[in-house]
């Protein structure tokens, strides 16, 4: 209702007064986002978490891997260790900051790769349809058939531990859902008349995909992949927890949660800290993607 156009003919005197300010697509997205305080807050939160992880070497008060048997399992609020220590006497603040690095890396990098690969396959499948679509999507369905955790464990188990293998595992797990989203969005765009108009002007498929399809498929895919960041973090934590991800003594939220599990009756609050970090980060990513979806929704 709000985008009733201000008239077309300048001769109309009534129309000369306020007319819609012409802004670009991203401008209008920002304009809607500007008043969405929840999303803005979550964006700021994510920025803070990312910055904290990046600057962990400078921010952390101590060496995250330096253990001290004398200072095991100090409580939160301790004079020297603000958030206490873990079961090996390592400073929790430092470990959480360093652990954020690994966890965020696990959240963001696999999603980026999966978006590129899955998105490309999805767009190809959605645009060409027919047999191409069948081959790509049925292959994806094979991966889809397994629960994602099970699939991740299976792949990670066969590849072995380590950060690199963990990233590959997560990427493979995340490709099918992204491919599906991209395929649906592309098939929808493909059926619209403006694609036919572009074909009628003699454009090549490559040109149509890059200048017409991509720009329309981008927003649903981006929104969806931002929800996957939190899933990826949680999956990575799960793998580390099972010992299939990073190996000790590297700090990682999932791994920390796993090792502190034994101390849960001694220092429950300290043991919960890595879990809280995972929770806050994933909720923030989810809320941001929710807000983005609303803001990117163009009323035709």
């Amino acid at each position: 209702m709000t985008d009733i156009p201000a008239g077309s003919l300048p001769v109309d005197k009534s129309q000369s007064a306020p007319s819609t300010k012409v802004r670009g697509y991203w401008g209008s997205v920002w304009n809607r986002l500007r008043y969405d305080y929840t999303t803005l807050f979550c964006m700021a939160l994510i920025a803070a978490i990312v910055l904290a992880a990046i600057f962990a070497p400078w921010l952390s008060p101590m060496d995250p891997e330096k253990s001290s048997m004398a200072n095991r399992l100090r409580p939160i609020g301790h004079a020297k260790f603000g958030l206490g220590t873990d079961e090996q006497g390592r400073d929790m603040i430092s470990r959480l900051l360093w652990g954020g690095r690994v966890s965020l890396l696990m959240g963001i990098v696999p999603v980026c790769f999966a978006t590129l690969i899955g998105g490309a396959f999805g767009i190809i499948a959605g645009y060409y349809g027919g047999k191409v679509n069948m081959v790509i999507m049925r292959t994806m369905d094979v991966f889809f058939a397994f629960p994602s955790v099970l699939l991740a464990v299976a792949i990670a188990g066969s590849l072995g531990g380590g950060i690199g293998n963990q990233m590959i595992t997560l990427t493979v797990v995340l490709i099918p859902p992204l491919c599906r989203v991209a395929e649906t969005a592309t098939a929808q765009v493909r059926s619209l008349d403006f694609v036919d108009a572009a074909r009628a002007s003699g454009a090549s498929t490559y040109s149509i995909i890059t200048s017409h399809v991509l720009i329309n498929v981008l927003s649903p895919v981006l929104v969806y992949s931002s929800t996957l960041v939190s899933i990826s973090i949680i999956l990575a934590s799960g793998l580390s927890f099972l010992g299939l991800g990073v190996s000790p003594p590297t700090a990682d939220w999932g791994l920390m949660l796993s090792t502190l599990r034994q101390s849960i009756y001694v220092q429950p609050l300290v043991a919960a800290l890595p879990g809280v970090c995972i929770l806050i980060t994933s909720i923030a990513f989810n809320l941001v993607s929710d807000g983005l979806r609303q803001a990117m929704d163009v009323k035709a």
């Binding site: 697509y25 619209l192 008349d193 403006f194 036919d196 108009a197 017409h212 720009i215 329309n216 163009v298 035709a300």
Partner: peptide, 11 residues
């Protein structure tokens, strides 16, 4: 084309 909604690229 007929449908003025889908005949122009919204982006």
């Amino acid at each position: 084309f007929q449908d003025s909604y889908s005949s122009l690229n919204p982006r």
